[in-house]
Design a protein around this nucleic acid. Structure first.
Length: 145
DNA sequence: GCCAACGTTGGC
DNA sequence: GCCAACGTTGGC
């Protein structure tokens, strides 16, 4: 799961411990939260759109999917008039802090490993802010900690 | 700031 | 349903 550190960083998560991952307005990203995530699933926290993009920490899924309340708040940045509270368009989960890596694993480093060449994160043009990680890739990256 | 790669919108 | 225009993401 990606976040711009200026908006919400791994340090912010370490402080608050649990964070509702709201504001996702992309159907594919929503589907991953709504359909694939289970409580306790491990998640990489990735800093994007910054000087040194990369994996900076670990967290876990901490709730079942539920409607994103910011979609119903007409004053909120992520308000969506087309999301009906009776039939919510945007679903999200809460995440819980696990740990911060001593040293981030930067995107530039990840790109260098032949073992990760087919990883979704590294595919050309990928802009998804939430995506699944294959087990083989997860295990390889864990070995880099 | 630039640009590639999408995703969304809206006219037809 | 098609597709051009526009908006967004995100690395560089």
């Amino acid at each position: 799961m990606k976040s711009e550190p200026d908006a919400f960083s791994i340090d912010d998560l370490q402080k608050v411990k649990i964070e509702p991952w709201d504001g996702i307005r992309n159907y594919q990203a929503r589907n991953f939260m709504r359909d694939q995530m289970r409580i306790g699933d491990k998640v990489f926290f990735y800093h994007s759109s910054c000087a040194e993009p990369g994996i900076v920490g670990l967290m876990r899924v901490h709730s079942k999917p539920y409607p994103d309340p910011t979609a119903f708040d007409s004053g909120a940045k992520y308000f969506d008039a087309k999301s009906d509270p009776e039939n919510p368009r945007w679903m999200m989960v809460d995440v819980k802090f696990s740990r911060k890596l001593k040293k981030p694993i930067l995107l530039a480093e990840l790109k260098g490993y032949s073992e990760l060449q087919d990883m979704k994160l590294l595919q050309r043009g990928n802009r998804l802010s939430i995506m699944p990680v294959e087990e083989k890739h997860w295990l390889f990256i864990e070995g880099l900690f």
